[in-house]
């Protein structure tokens, strides 16, 4: 994560994937204990990763990353459980696994993020879709969408920020 904060995109990618692996098991356990369907867990993992991204400037590189990630994961998990009408007050000490469990991402699902994506303004939606789902590079996506790379970067950033905001505003 320290490398990632210094602007190393590849390190950041690895770091986020590592977090997803560590989060999956604990989030699923918490969700099930709250009486919700295990299939909601991946939505919550995605929400946590989005929050990690949007709030990464609140991590002080002089501090260990563990407590920071754990606090975000707890906060987002409690929020998600409450929103879905699950049982509150579930103990959540272990949302982040210390050892990465061999957990795979579930294969085909219509995620909550997809529904949130559909509500984005067209430009931002196109940018997020091109980079995320199609896996295009900025230059390819910009050419395809008939815009500049800079504008695309801005649209992607705004789109992700809006996804993060709409997550907790859903009731």
């Amino acid at each position: 994560m320290r490398l990632a904060m210094a602007g190393d995109g590849a390190a950041y990618d690895r770091c986020l994937r590592g977090m997803a692996v560590r989060l999956r098991g604990g989030v699923r356990r918490a969700i099930m204990r709250a009486g919700l369907a295990a299939s909601d867990a991946e939505d919550v993992v995605q929400e946590i990763l989005l929050a990690v991204h949007l709030k990464r400037h609140t991590w002080d590189a002089a501090r260990p990353i563990g407590p920071w990630l754990a606090a975000i994961a707890r906060h987002k998990t409690i929020d998600a459980i409450r929103r879905r009408g699950g049982r509150a007050g579930v103990p959540l000490d272990d949302v982040v696994d210390t050892l990465p469990a061999p957990s795979e991402e579930p294969a085909i699902r219509e995620t909550e993020l997809v529904r949130a994506l559909e509500r984005l303004p067209a430009g931002e939606r196109a940018a997020v879709t091109a980079i995320a789902v199609d896996g295009a590079s900025f230059s390819d996506a910009a050419r395809k969408l008939g815009t500049s790379e800079g504008a695309l970067r801005v649209a992607l950033h705004r789109g992700l920020a809006r996804l993060g905001r709409t997550a907790h505003e859903r009731t």
Binding site: E42, V45, L50, V114, V133, L156
Partner: peptide
């Protein structure tokens, strides 16, 4: 959207950085 896809988008957005709150 798969988590993999989301991570790709987040990593692509890594360059934009905000000032820490202490500033």
């Amino acid at each position: 959207m798969k988590t993999d896809d989301l991570v790709r988008a987040l990593a692509a957005d890594a360059a934009v950085r905000e000032r820490p709150l202490a500033v």
